[in-house]
Design a protein around this nucleic acid. Structure first.
Lengths: 336, 336
DNA sequence: CTGAAAGCGCTAACAG
DNA sequence: CTGTTAGCGCTTTCAG
């Protein structure tokens, strides 16, 4: 690979403008004392050369890169896509740049840890299902603030921001009962996934207080297709409960399509609820009752933590998990 | 903001290992001559200090950042979300890092040009609807390779990769005619948007060759909601054509929901086709006939151009637009 | 194979 | 206000 053409440097500009190199630096930085005259000459020369200041030496000097890494694995999920978008906009507003890291299978941060460290990122947002203890400790030693998005890290070094999964699930349980359901089912995401388990836990506990203790459980891997199959199988066996709670909206869509295909009516025969409130949940075809976790609120909370920790030099946190409240929006799939 | 804790440097490692700083550098770079013994001592010390090499000085020295910017404005669209994902995975495989830049309203690259230049990105992928001449020339002068994704730049300095919009639209026209439609409608995206106009052009021209020259046109801004309203309005006026082509799938979903709400049957009363083949197009609720533009092929083409141009020092291109072929997948919304 | 030394482009402290 | 100077942490000659 041919080495790229060199950019003009502040020294080049200085030479052309007939001033010192530091004068150029000052002209390009707010709040430094430069005379009108010098400044004019500098910008004149800079324009002529097509100069733009190079931020890389600054990173070296200041020991800050202004880079924040966002690590994501499940970018097919619109919920995460929206979160990435919100994060990047918020970060850019405070002068940070976003390093987007897409990891494929492995749920762990461990593999990309050295890369992140070598780029000297100022902070990390992890949207991975798991933050291992080893990775967390490595970042803690490096003093890189890290916040785990939508998965609690159970780790003293990592701050987490989660939606109130169990609380949202409880709201669904209440609604199902209020609407008269007597038998219940749950379509989970990935086994052992935190959010999925919490949603099941909240659902089960609240149903328990209503005196119901049996839940038909199936797994759908957070995917439309798998959930479709799971629901189709239930219908095949004639074992569809009166109310089905899906751990995300995507799966709820699959369930709705499978039930309709099987000739069951929603909500008359079966009620369905999801989680996430993705845009499609409001569409006429689905009109899905679902749990809304203000993702703006989650992103805002995460950003606030990040800024605080970048400012304080990443002192150990108490591993606190910020739980963002959720609400339930009832639509046609439960309204009867 | 407190200045962050300094990372251990290669000098620190060298001191602890009792070797020179350059020995540490060599140990951490493949293919440099270092003895087994030295290497061992270096890694030992590095581990003890938690050292990871700092890439920032390297960027300074090599005049390459290994950063590739992806600039995106419409991140709500799953098509772009998937493209970003594919780009970032492909780029990471070749040792590049992705700088994600989300811009909001302004369709132009001009505003973020200085920032990209200052970060000395090695290349740019623009998924913006427009690349201005000024921006293109600035990047050309800086020798930053840039490829415009899904919008031709009509500019000598910018390589473009587009899907064969007109060709895909022509396929839709053929199918509609073959299935017996006699009246036609088009729901466009943003007015003056290239992709939308090309799709209309291809649709109109091919219909012309079949002897049809009237097309009912409405605009839907690429959104479900707006397309829903447009179709609902058509239904209200009892002016729904027998075949409706929507400039993207999202709008086709809106149209389908609106038509059904209005009591029209698809495909018996109205045929509908979209463009993109987003995952939801295959779902039971929609089962939408749509144009598939292999986004993998588009991303692969863009990546190939990027690599070639990064290698050749970004010589001026001939402003060539690579057109990626598309295909049509027929589903229930036209099958009668 | 290894160390010393130069220098990438910038910022900041220091004199003037 | 401005120039000089000293690095930031690396990679890369250049001698040994």
């Amino acid at each position: 690979m041919k080495s790229p053409r060199k950019y003009p440097s502040s020294t080049d500009v200085a030479r052309l403008a007939g001033v010192s190199q530091s004068a150029v630096s000052r002209a390009f930085n707010e709040g430094k004392s430069v005379s009108e005259e010098t400044s004019r000459k500098v910008f004149e020369a800079a324009k002529q050369l097509g100069y733009s200041p190079n931020f890389i030496p600054r990173m070296l000097l200041k020991h800050r890169s202004d880079l924040v890494a966002i690590v994501i694995s499940d970018s097919a999920n619109p919920f995460y896509a929206a979160a990435v978008d919100a994060f990047s906009k918020a970060l850019q507003e405070t002068g940070h740049q976003v390093l987007l890291v897409s990891v494929d299978g492995g749920p762990a941060l461990d593999g990309i840890l050295p890369r992140l460290a070598s780029y000297r990122v100022d902070a990390i947002v992890s949207a991975l299902p798991v933050v291992t203890k080893a990775a967390a400790e490595a970042f803690a030693r490096l003093r890189i603030p890290i916040v785990s998005f939508n998965t609690p890290a159970h780790n003293q070094w990592v701050a987490s921001v989660c939606s109130d999964n169990a609380g949202g699930a409880a709201l669904v349980a209440d609604l199902f009962v209020k609407r008269g359901a007597k038998s219940f089912g749950f379509i989970g995401g990935t086994p052992s996934d935190y959010a999925s388990e919490e949603r099941l836990r909240g659902f089960r506990e609240r149903l328990g207080t209503h005196g119901f203790d049996r839940i038909e459980i199936a797994m759908g891997d957070y995917l439309y297709e798998d959930a479709y199959k799971a629901a189709a199988a239930m219908a095949e066996r004639r074992e569809v409960p009166e109310a089905l709670f899906c751990a995300n909206d995507l799966m709820a869509f699959g369930v709705l399509d499978a039930l309709r295909r099987a000739g069951l009516r929603v909500p008359q025969d079966v009620m369905v609820a999801g989680y996430d409130d993705v845009p499609a949940a409001a569409w006429g075809s689905f009109d899905l009752t679902t749990v809304v976790h203000g993702h703006e609120a989650m992103v805002a909370a995460a950003i606030a933590i990040l800024h605080a920790r970048m400012a304080d030099g990443a002192e150990p946190t108490d591993g606190v998990t910020t739980t963002v409240p959720v609400s339930l929006i009832e639509r046609a799939t439960t309204r009867r």
